[in-house]
């Protein structure tokens, strides 16, 4: 009897959700900084909402912060914006002022 009930439950609510879906569900925008050689740094913006056009945002970033950058396609994180230089705080302010994300949804990492 108990077996049939077990079989009925095809959906396992305790199944592992996996890392990447976890990252997406939380809806945080992570802004990270990475060191390059010398005093140079890279800023990465991960987890921007999917309905936004990353290329247009990148263009705006580039113009606003006067830097270069690209959109990188990552297997499990989706599109990630990379910018040259440390623009973490500026990015947060920009996203907040343009109404693309609220400040509490943005997490700044790094030193």
């Amino acid at each position: 009897m108990s077996e049939t009930i077990q079989n009925l439950a095809s959906y396992d609510p305790f199944a592992d959700t996996g890392e990447e879906s976890d990252l997406k569900v939380q809806g945080y925008i992570h802004i990270r900084v990475q060191q390059r050689n010398g005093r140079k740094t890279l800023t990465t913006v991960q987890g921007l909402p999917a309905d936004l056009d990353q290329k247009r945002i990148l263009k705006a970033f580039k113009k606003e912060f006067a830097c270069n950058g690209t959109v990188v396609q990552d297997e499990d994180l989706g599109e990630v914006i990379q910018l040259q230089g440390d623009h973490r705080v500026k990015i947060q302010q920009f996203l907040a002022s343009e109404g693309l994300a609220s400040k509490d949804k943005i997490k700044i990492h790094g030193f």
Partner: peptide
């Protein structure tokens, strides 16, 4: 603790 995206460095 999650490392997140890491840009490819030189």
């Amino acid at each position: 603790i999650k490392t997140g995206f890491m840009a490819q460095t030189r």
